[in-house]
């Protein structure tokens, strides 16, 4: 399974309006939880897992991209939630972040998780791709960018 297999236009937030790290994580997780029908307990588990990982070291990279992620034991399939913020926010990195890829990984397939994270990292090394992603106005535009 590749990145293109798990990207879902129903799991994209444009624009993200929160301005604090923990609120952004909650926004991204809540969208996933609502779409996939997670229980409140599961929702809280995911938020805690992602936040705990961020507390170890921020996943904010260069070019204003952050890739918060966690392994979730009750997930059958890996998932990505994409969020684009118009105003870059402090996500704990050297520079502020405006593009967020929340990657939730199933524990069953570590190879797949590595491949997905690696594809996102490679994509985000492209200045043009980042510029186009930042200027996307709708989930459809974000989704389509990956398939161009």
């Amino acid at each position: 399974m590749t990145l293109l297999d798990i990207i879902d236009k129903n799991l994209v937030i444009v624009p993200l309006t929160s301005s604090r790290r923990d609120d952004i994580i909650a926004d991204l997780v809540n969208l996933y939880a609502d779409r996939k029908g997670l229980s409140d307990e599961q929702r809280q588990y995911v938020i805690r897992a992602v936040t705990d990982r961020e507390n170890m070291a921020s996943t904010a990279m260069e070019k204003g991209v952050a890739i918060p992620h966690a392994k979730i034991p009750f997930l059958k399939k890996s998932a990505i939630v994409i969020g684009i913020s118009r105003i870059p926010v402090d996500f704990g990195g050297k520079e502020k972040s405006g593009i967020f890829f929340l990657v939730l990984a199933s524990e069953d397939n570590p190879t797949e998780h590595i491949q997905i994270l690696s594809s996102i990292a490679k994509l985000c090394s492209s200045d043009i791709f980042i510029r186009m992603l930042s200027s996307s106005r709708t989930p459809d535009e974000v989704y389509q960018l990956f398939f161009d």
Binding site: S58, H69, L117, S118, A121
Partner: peptide, 17 residues
């Protein structure tokens, strides 16, 4: 795929743990 693992650490997406 230790190449991808190494790249993820370099990009600071993964911590060494």
């Amino acid at each position: 795929n230790t190449k991808a693992l190494g790249d993820l650490v370099k990009a600071r997406i993964f911590v060494s743990q």
